[in-house]
Design a protein around this nucleic acid. Sequence first.
DNA 1: ACCGTGACTCTGC
DNA 2: TGCAGAGCCACGG
Length: 107
Amino acid sequence: MNRTNKDIDQRIWQVVMLIPAGRVATYGDVARYAGLPGAARRVGRALRGLPEDTGIPWHRVINAQGKLVVPGGSAARDRQRERLASEGVCFRSAATVSLRQFRWHPE
DNA sequence: ACCGTGACTCTGC
DNA sequence: TGCAGAGCCACGG
């Protein structure tokens, strides 16, 4: 079975959509839940290609250090922090979330 | 095919 | 707490 890149992206997006509001997940977690252990960078690439008006909650995906790593300079970074805050996610610092407290753990 | 780069992660100092 | 190194997957020159 040859999985196309598009299939992989969809798989990743589907996992991201499972993250409930007020919670966050790391790139590595998403990769693992999508059946792609170790492909955290692949997840980042999949999210980078999303349009601005997407319904996929990409802002709930951060790195393993609880940090928002979306490139600065783009409005996306501020939007991510704003959305998370509005969902009730508290920040330990300007761009760092309390993973311990808000990390999503699928059952 | 080689190499640099990136919305990554883990380990060790 | 912070930074460097190495490993990771994938893309583009």
